[in-house]
């Protein structure tokens, strides 16, 4: 085959690819990129929501980096990620891995794990708040008390409140992760397992040598999407803390909540978008690093 022929095939394929992409790319430009671009400009201005905005250069950024609350919420945001990601992925993989082998009432058990993901955050946050109450009301403290363990303050503590708010987020997202893991596990052709079984390889080796490597695209997807999810945590904090403020004493407040407050409570669009830009850059950086580290090919 001559060089020119390959070129033509390649070009033809590229043309097809762009033909498939043109409508979606236009869509993304209009609905996502353009508003984002507008936001980046707003972060350099100040003024009322209506009417002219004054250009203030980097003032909003200077203010942000000098604000101790910003650094506090920035740190919280990473705590959510650092605890939430490993915990949720470990549990969901274990559930999916064993659920995949269970035949009896498989669909029913799977549904049990998925139900939390189906229910609205507002309703569930309310229920969780009662679970965290002291005895005689709170379920968790009742269990601790029955086991002879000391009572815990949970949401009313500087140290325990963040994990306590995170728990329902992990709980709600578990069904999502399990389903993706199951879909990934099932995309692995049976032939690999059959070959391994014929070779008499043990289950542990199969897990490490076959299942996990072949699950890499799924794993990469879940790591990236879950990371973004934990770094953008909002619903649980908004619905479980007093006034939706991420207390006590900002112990649970994540960046997105701070952004929401700046925009819709304080009406400071410039300051809100400046924080959004930081969130955007951080998320993008983390994602690119994860994609590099876990490159599927």
């Amino acid at each position: 085959m001559s060089f020119r022929d390959t070129m033509t095939v390649g070009q033809k394929r590229a043309a097809t690819a762009w033909m498939f992409l043109i409508v979606p790319v236009l869509f993304f430009v209009v609905v996502r990129f353009w508003p984002t671009f507008q936001s980046s400009w707003i972060s350099l201005t100040e003024g009322p929501m209506m009417g002219p905005r004054d250009f203030v250069g980097l003032d909003n950024y200077v203010r942000m980096f000098g604000d101790p609350v910003f650094w506090k919420v920035f740190g919280n945001t990473f705590k959510y990620l650092a605890i939430g990601l490993p915990v949720s992925l470990t549990i969901s993989f274990a559930v999916a891995y064993y659920l995949d082998r269970v035949r009896f009432m498989h669909g029913f058990i799977r549904a049990l794990y998925f139900v939390p993901y189906l229910t609205t955050a507002v309703a569930m946050a309310w229920v969780w708040r009662w679970f965290y109450e002291p005895v005689p009301i709170g379920l968790f403290n009742q269990i601790l008390s029955a086991m002879g363990l000391p009572q815990q303050p949970f949401l009313r503590s500087m140290t325990q409140s963040l994990p306590s708010v995170l728990a329902p987020a992990v709980w709600a997202g578990l069904g999502f992760q399990v389903i993706i893991f199951l879909a990934g596990l099932r995309a692995i052709p049976d032939t690999y397992y059959e070959a391994a079984r014929i070779d008499g390889v043990g289950p542990w080796t199969i897990l490490w040598e076959i299942t996990l490597p072949l699950l890499k695209p799924t794993l990469l997807f879940l790591i990236v999407v879950s990371s973004i999810g934990f770094l953008r945590i909002f619903d649980q904090v908004y619905n479980m803390t007093v006034d939706g403020q991420g207390g006590p004493l900002n112990a649970t407040r994540p960046l997105v909540l701070n952004i929401y407050n700046s925009a819709f409570v304080d009406y400071e669009m410039g300051y809100a978008t400046a924080q959004t830009m930081v969130l955007f850059v951080v998320l993008l950086a983390i994602t690119v690093v994860q994609l590099r580290l876990l490159r599927s090919e």
Binding site: R156, V242, D243, Q245, G247, P248, L249, N250, D266
Partner: peptide, 19 residues
């Protein structure tokens, strides 16, 4: 700034109560 001033009150009580 009603919400910010309310937050200052909440923080003040939290510092006494759990801080």
């Amino acid at each position: 700034n009603e919400s910010a001033q309310r937050q200052i009150w909440l923080d003040m009580i939290d510092r006494i109560n759990i801080g």
